[in-house]
Design a binder for these strands. Structure first.
Lengths: 350, 350
DNA sequence: TTGTAAGCGTTATCAC
DNA sequence: GTGATAACGCTTACAA
């Protein structure tokens, strides 16, 4: 592999200066005076030689890898259909690039190898970490806190000292349920997005309960089912619900993906949405307005979430210590056709 | 940040040996003789100190970063709803981990900064690259070839010397169209997944044409429309088709995602699928069996694709030069309800 | 304003 | 079998 091994020495030689000067110029070190002519000479030499500093050498000397780690804690099955991830990724990479950094991505199974991200840190492979889907039973997390490693959680860990960015799950669910209540529904089923050990799932369920309470509608446990992220589980739980003999006229499904499955189940039971049952989801995935019927749901600001998380991380990397440790983003009800509110045609520009 | 800065020297001290020995033991250097007792001592010392080698130092000295780059060439809009990506990611990370390596991910806009991945290579930040969505007008690619940088394309670049792994797009489309032809359809519209400058789109269109030809059905250009990856474009193109006055009883939509939009358009025109129009997609996204109607489509082996690509890359990294440069994976027709072939109920285990 | 020289924490090449 | 010692290519005091 005949790589053109251009080093800073080569640049220095060509520009007729020392390596130091090259480094100073190229890194644009502030508070240093370099004559404009040498600066130009160096820049030009680097340009001509197509010089790119060796990342490893740079990292070793500067103690900064210029890489941030995105660690996703999920089971493999969850990944494959996780669109929320692609949206996050999009936002993340843009911000990271803007800061001249790179993104290392890692997926770790919650069951095993929780240590993985500590390894990344200890090897100094990453300067900071964005952790998505943190679990409270993850002991390794403390190690991050102990050494004060720049960390931002995507999601929440109630009571922890971590910086975190999340969506207001409780309000989102409250909003969804309230929409159904406002339409006159009183028997409203709920299918969670995940088991309650996930804070997001728990919060969504309690948002739903709160909404019922506020409206003076009694909470009826048999009307609640627990899905597990994917449409399949939504399909099963809705079937289960329909076959349980419980009586309900609407359902709040705490994840669009799960809702897709639930809708399929409903259809198979010969029920029409929204005529026979109103349904509202949560996420507003890019396809949710194309399915049948176009899904009324709660929009989560995925890209903004990612942007804010990276911005926060960069501040940490620069040594700042922002006051606010937890950032909670608002959500928004998107009314489409699955509750019967808006039956007249599909709105492509919504 | 009080990081426990454990170096190999510390391990050496504790084990009462030299750094060299530590390196030899920890890296399990083959063909070297080390007494079992010292080996144990070193291992134990490392364990006790929680020693993790510094990635930068290791990379600098060994000239290997142990990181492979996944570079996605797409526009930002394409990313957000790209489920195929999540599936790929899943497969990729598993393989990469198995090899004890890491994954650096990068998205680059085809319009700009095509040089980005060269930068990664020149900075020696990555040992090899998996390039998804290569474009033939990308000059930078040659630089990879020139220096013989370990590269595997996810997708194809006809006539190039790159190693590549792809799905048999032509056969997939041929298969889809043939299914419709077998059901008796003769006027079959086609909405591509993307503009024809994308080889995949081009291949899919020509698979469709071929199928028609084989069946003795004339190819009718007005029946073809070009979408751009997302449901939105599918919606528009199907509208366009329906309003063009062209006569057709079936449609082959070369991407499930695009098909979702096309179905929405059809629905709005008061047409039922499959009763009024048969439709077959291509991709078999995880939701395609939950939408209404469950979509007949062609399954693409996303995870296997990723697995094979990484395996191939690892062979390149080890200096092998596999004979076969282009690997093409087969696809499979998945019959569901959108062509009317199987109207009796939904099959969750399909 | 620029150059000298000492790290950074490994791996790799030799001797012993 | 094991240990000095020299790279690896850069940053950064400290001098000049």
């Amino acid at each position: 592999m005949a790589v053109n091994r251009v080093t800073s020495q080569d640049v220095a030689d060509r520009a007729g200066v020392s390596r130091t000067t090259v480094s100073l110029v190229l890194n644009n070190v502030p508070g240093i005076q370099i004559s404009d002519t040498t600066r130009q000479r160096v820049l030009q030499a680097a340009e001509e030689l197509n010089y790119v500093p060796d990342a490893a050498a740079q990292a070793l000397a500067s103690r900064q890898s210029q890489v941030i780690g995105l660690v996703l804690i999920r089971t493999p099955d969850q990944i494959a259909s996780d669109i929320f991830l692609t949206q996050t990724l999009d936002g993340l990479i843009k911000s990271v690039h803007k800061a001249g950094m790179r993104l290392l991505i890692d997926i770790i199974d919650p069951e095993h190898q929780e240590e993985t991200y500590l390894h990344l840190m200890r090897a100094k492979r990453i300067d900071g970490i964005i952790l998505s889907g943190p679990r409270s039973n993850d002991e390794s997390l403390n190690a991050l806190l102990d050494v004060d490693f720049p960390t931002v959680l995507l999601g929440q860990l109630p009571g922890s000292q971590f910086y975190s960015v999340d969506v207001d799950n409780r309000a989102a669910a409250h909003n969804a349920a309230t929409h159904l209540l406002n339409l006159g529904h009183r028997r409203i089923a709920c299918i969670t997005n995940a088991p309650l050990s996930y804070t997001a799932a728990n919060d969504r369920l309690s948002g739903y309960r709160q909404a019922l309470e506020t409206a003076g509608v009694p909470f009826d446990p048999p009307l609640v089912r627990f899905a597990e992220f994917d449409p399949e589980s939504g399909y099963e739980q809705m079937n289960n619900l329909l076959e349980s003999g419980s009586d309900f006229s609407a359902a709040f499904v705490a994840s669009d993906l799960v809702a897709y499955g639930a809708i399929a189940a409903t259809r198979e039971h010969g029920l029409r949405i929204p005529e026979d049952m109103a349904l509202v989801g949560l996420d507003d995935l890019p396809f949710s307005r194309f399915i049948s019927p176009p899904l009324t749901t709660i929009r989560l600001p995925a890209i903004e979430l990612a942007r804010i998380a990276t911005d926060l991380l960069f501040r940490l990397l620069q040594g700042e210590q922002p006051e606010q440790k937890q950032i909670i983003l608002g959500t928004e009800l998107v009314v489409r056709d699955s509750c019967g509110a808006k039956l007249h045609g599909y709105a492509p520009h919504q």
